[in-house]
Every structure is written in structure tokens, then in C-alpha cells.
Design a protein around this nucleic acid. Sequence first.
DNA 1: CTGAAAGCGCTTACAG
DNA 2: CTGAAAGCGCTTACAG
Lengths: 360, 360
Amino acid sequence: MDTRGSKSAGNRRVTIKDVAAALNVAVSTVSNAYNRPDQLSPALRQRVFETAERIGYPGPNPVARGLRRGTSGLIAILLGQPLAAAYADPVTAATLEGITAALAESGRYGLVLVPSEPAGGLPAADGAIALCPDRDDPLLTQVTRHGQPIVLVDHPQRGQLAHIQVDDEMAARGAIGHLTGLGHTRIGIIVDGLFGAAVPGVVSGEQRTGSTISRTNARLRGYQVGAEAAGLNWARLPVYAAGSDSIEAGQAAGEAVLDGDPDLTAILTTTDRLAAGVLAAARSREIRVPDRLSVVGFDDTPVARAANPPLTSVRQPHAAKGRAAAMALLAQLHSEPAPAVGRMAPKLVVRGSSATPPPS
Amino acid sequence: MDTRGSKSAGNRRVTIKDVAAALNVAVSTVSNAYNRPDQLSPALRQRVFETAERIGYPGPNPVARGLRRGTSGLIAILLGQPLAAAYADPVTAATLEGITAALAESGRYGLVLVPSEPAGGLPAADGAIALCPDRDDPLLTQVTRHGQPIVLVDHPQRGQLAHIQVDDEMAARGAIGHLTGLGHTRIGIIVDGLFGAAVPGVVSGEQRTGSTISRTNARLRGYQVGAEAAGLNWARLPVYAAGSDSIEAGQAAGEAVLDGDPDLTAILTTTDRLAAGVLAAARSREIRVPDRLSVVGFDDTPVARAANPPLTSVRQPHAAKGRAAAMALLAQLHSEPAPAVGRMAPKLVVRGSSATPPPS
DNA sequence: CTGAAAGCGCTTACAG
DNA sequence: CTGAAAGCGCTTACAG
């Protein structure tokens, strides 16, 4: 009746049954050797392991165990991007660092990274952490509908779901305040994220509040509030959507903005990679940074430190956010009360890419 | 008898049985609706899906399906590093890009990334691609012992296992040839990877062939062959182990090497990140690149292009390697003959970080 | 300390 | 086209 799919042609899998048969004990005894050491004598347990080793039993099959226990031991990370894109994203990297650190301490969960369009569908997992930057990620709906434990990172509030967030708007206000404080008034802004407007290209009027990336929205709002607080006319500051977040996109955007507005003395961005691209754009136009142009990044990733000159950037506690998200999820999974999350404040780090504007 | 572990407290899972009961059909009919559309009328199939939607059935449980079918639909990527480290590694990113592209075309496999010390053990997968740079990765043994299909990338030959490789030694010879061709003779070398020697620190004599990272070994051998071909005394060229592969490690190593050997006119590295660090070291010592010092990276990752000045580097077809590995694994999984792999040749890309040595 | 048995949720060959 | 039944490999409450 049963033709099991074979993992590799003609390769019978050795199971707990084989070990039991070889030792002439019940399968439950073998199982106990792995799962409940106190249920059998150390000597017998030792013999079980030796026999397993001898006949090539790799230990309990995680799929069968998962079915029986109703858990997978896996936590899904919803990336919200293709895997390769997420991989190149320094913010995701830093956040993952915090997640893995917290999870390693618990020692009980593996991680499965879920890209925006997972081949083979959503994998089985006991819980999820959503890093997906997009406000309307469809996978999010799919996961939450099943009532699976989930924690959102940098996402707008969504029902009663747990979420971890820092105040991006305030952070952005601080960044533009740094520039206006230095005396800049002709400031351009380059953002990632998609808008109603054609991208890459200028974003004007109401479209400026329409990014589907919630993080970008918050940052842009902060720039607006900060600009107006400094008495600048927000509608006059050029906002340019780079279309994606990469050094290349930042360079193209930077060239477009600098060519269109040669009088700018500063450019704010919503990510470090865009800012690094602006540096390259300035180099290609022979505009010296920071003498003639100040550039400010966002997130303070390794990209900011590696840039030449090093980027002034808004430091985000990415790893701490990842750690907090993992702790919150762990608490949910173990039905414990959510841990208190310390205040996570962003902070502007001033480096060589920003200075007073040139005398006009 | 059975207390199933619940995913989240008090949350009964809805199963295929519930759908069958609600519709008054057999479970096999519901299963067929998902798996064999030709086995039931379109109308009935439609009703099954509607009922599933209505009572909140999320579709076949992948764990149960996996157990029954003997497959998981997952391919394991053995990273050989902690997840966060692998994430920050541009070579891994590029290789993954190729893997995901090839896998997306097949549309049937998800990816599970396995770090060097996976919490919860090795996850269930139908096959594996090993990117782990370390020669002696213990997970490799674990996977291969079960006869699971596997493809090695940039690994020394290991039994009959499939493997994808480019000629790193030849590539390294080309890189040092570029420098000697320009007239350099006082060349320092900075490598990643661990040796018997204390790291970070100088590696001398026989230790130079002892890196556990196979890729590093091959590159170092190429530097040696190339140096000797140009008439240089290999034993005289300083080789410095940075201890790890990062911009920071490269900077520290660069400073140590430049301080120890102020006469050097060129530094070769085994990775772009180390080379970017050397650039930072030169800046901190006020040594101009390429006027007084040439710097050459390896792998031609985005780091090389983003550096200032942009790095001369050895281009590797990382994405093509990833793609080839995925295709080879797919062939094994479907019991097809291995696809022919076109010749993948590395190629030196000359950019602004290398030039003729200063007049002495 | 040991073992027989039920059942996790599903798929599939088979009978009707 | 539909359904009853076996079984994937394991864990666990229970009886001995």
C-alpha cells in the first residue's frame, strides 16, 4: 500500500524501529533514551546510542517528532523581500544578530528565513518575527490568520499583535535638526520605498505620505516636522524616491537630485546605502563632501563607518530590537507575560560627512 | 491518551478531518482537492475550498505531508558560520542569489539556512548545499553520513560528492602577477582564516599552508606560485592572518603590516572586506592609495565597488556558482544526470586601488 | 525500569 | 468520481 517517497533513490531510511529490533527492546525505550534519560538505566541508554551509531540511526526524525509534538522547533523570520535582497540589507543583518543571540540563549529554536514569495509555501514554524518592511505584506495576513504567535518589528500597530518599534519620526527630526542647526536651508531628501509616483523620480505633495514602507513614512514625516520647525517650506524641499535601497540606486538618485538642484548644500536620506550612493554621486560630479555638500544617512550600519568620508547617520538599536522581538516571541510561546522592553532611543552619530554649509 | 503540544495555548488546530466532516465527504476527497484535481469534479473541489476558507483550514499541514511523503520540500544551506556572520558576508550573499534564482525556477523547494551550530539540530531537508568555508565542518559529516544529496561549493574534493569550484589558485596567481607586472616587489599579504599560528599575527614558514579554510589555502598557494614565478623570495613576503574576515579586522591587520613593514608598496588580501580595511588603515597612516600603496581585494563583491578608491579585485562568478550548485542538487534530487557546468573562470578587475609603485 | 498501543495530520493505492 | 484504511516515524500516558 505504501510507497514512501524516498529521499534519494534506493536508500532505506533507518528508524527508531530498527534500533529497537537490533536491541530487542521496545521502540518506546529507544525513544526514552533520547527524550527521557531518567526513564531507563544509564547502561541501557548507552547501549541504545551505541546501537544507533552502529546501524546508522541519525536520531529522531524531526518531521515525525514535529507531527507528534505539534511543534517544529522552528521560528519563521518574515523577511518581506527576496532572500538575496534581504541578505544584502545591513539592517536585516543587524536585527538578525540580535534575534539569533536571544534565541541561542534559549537553545531550543532553529530559524527559518521566509522570503517574500516562499517557494513551497509558508514552512511550518511555531512562531514568527516579521521584519517585512512593507505595510501590506500578504504573508503577514496568512500567518496571523492562523493565530500563530508573532511579533512585528518596525511595523504599524496591527490589532493586538506584539510589536517592537523605535521612534523613527523623532529620529528623523533629530537628523534634519542637525543640518538646520549647522545653517543648512537648501536640503534635498532621498528616500527608499515605493509611492504612487513613478520611481525613481520626484515625489511631491500628498504622495509624500504614501510610502508603503512604514519606516520610510515615519522618517519622511520626521523630516517634514523638523523642516517646518526650522521655518523651512516643506513643499520646496525636493524629495526624490530612489526606487530601491542600494548604493547604486542612491548614486543614480543623488546624481539626479544634484543635477536638478545644484544649489543644495545638504542631502538627507532614509538609509545608509542611499547615503553611500550619494557620496559616489558627489564624487562623480566633483562635489566635495562635506565642504560643499553634507550627507546624512540613516541606521548607522557598517556601511556608514566604511564610507569615505564616514557618514553622519542616525543610530538605531537594531540588534537590541531583534533581541527584544525574540524575547517577546519566546514569552508568547511559553505563555509567559511579555518582558518589559527598555526604552530604545535612536541617536544621531555625527561623522565626517556633515559640516556647516559653504558660504554662499 | 494524547495530549498534543499546542502551538499557542488553547488553540485547536483545524484539520483536513474538520473540512471533511463539515462537507460530509471522506478526508481523501479533501486531500484530493489539494493534490489531485483530476480526481474529483470541479464543483466539489470548489466547495471543498470554500468550506476550508469558511472554517479556517489553512491547507495541508506541511509537517504531516512531509512525514507521509518522506520529503520536506526544503533544501538546507550549510553556512558554516553563525547566521549573523554569514549574513554580513557578501560572498555568501552573491552565492545565495544564484541558488535562489535557480530554485525559484523549479518552484518546488524552500530554503533553510543552517548556521554552524544550529539550535535544535539539523532541520529536516531533502538535500543540502554546503557553502561552509571550513575544511572540517562537522555538520558536513553529519549530513553526508545519511546519504543525503549534497553539493559542495568551494570545498576540497570529498569522496564522490558533487562539487562546484573555480580555480582560486590560478586567480590568485593572476592577482599577484598584476602587481609584479606593474613593478611591485615589496608586497605584503593579508589573509582570513585560522592557522596553527596565533591570530591575528604573522604566519611564517610551513604554517602558510595550514589554513582550515580551503579557499584561503588555494589563494595563498597562488600567491606563492606567482611570487616565485616573478623571482620574488616567498619566505620574505610578510603574510599576516587577520583572524577573521571583516573591514575592522582588515584595518587592524593593515595597520600592523604597514607599521611593521613601512617599505611595502602593495598589499594583497584574500577578501574584499580585508582590502577595504587596508584602505582604512592606509588612511589612518596617511598613506595615499594607489600613489604610495596598491591594494588588491578578492571576490569583487559590492564592497569593492563601494570602496574609495574602488578596489582592484579578482572577480568570481559567485552567482553562477550558486546557480550551478542548485542545478546539480536538483538533478540529484530528481535522479537526473548532473548538468554540464560551463567553465567558470575568475578574472582580475583593475580599478583605482592599484598602480605602479612609487619611485624608490 | 520496560513495553504495547494510540494517535499526530496527512497521502495514496485500492476497491467500489 | 468517492471513500475506507494503512501507514509515514515518532512520543507519551498508561499498565505492568
